[in-house]
Design a binder for these strands. Structure first.
Length: 133
DNA sequence: CTTTTGACGCGTA
DNA sequence: CTACGCGCCAAAA
């Protein structure tokens, strides 16, 4: 089909940036969480882009619920409220939220893909998310 | 082509 | 703790 408005940003393996992002998120194991910034560093883009990709997500094979913000909280949606489903899904896989609605990134923060995976997928290492302050 | 719109992060005050 | 600014940038309008 000869369109000119479709996504044309591809890497060497023919994947769009969003597809690469989804590929990274799929590596996060159950019971662990990554941050938007962490995924961004891994794919080499800005943190907000990860949020856009999650918002645009239509596939069901991507564990989007495991991506939290740098505070270890569920980011608010455009409407202003948190997604209660995200918290349910994480709770169901054993991720504990404290009274302030935060998870302990030091305890459940994902360490990222191993070097081989990063290499094969043209990604970069990123620091494990940690509790700030 | 331009403008708008965000599931972000971090420094500062 | 809250509030604000600004860099970031793909996608849709």
């Amino acid at each position: 089909m000869s369109t000119h408005t479709e996504d044309t940003r591809r890497d060497d393996s023919g994947r769009s940036l969003y597809e690469r992002i989804y590929g990274v998120v799929q590596q996060i194991p159950p019971g662990r969480v990554a941050t938007y910034g962490q995924v961004a560093t891994i794919v080499g883009s800005g943190a907000r882009t990860i949020g856009y990709a999650m918002a645009a997500l239509r596939r069901r094979d991507v564990p989007w619920q495991r991506v939290l913000n740098s505070e270890g909280r569920i980011s608010r949606r455009a409407h202003g409220a948190e997604d209660s489903r995200q918290r349910e899904l994480l709770t169901a896989e054993g991720v504990f939220f404290d009274r302030r609605g935060r998870v302990d990134l030091d305890a459940v923060g994902w360490e990222g893909p191993d070097m081989d995976w990063l290499d094969e997928n043209d990604c970069f290492p990123a620091p494990r998310p940690a509790t700030r302050r």
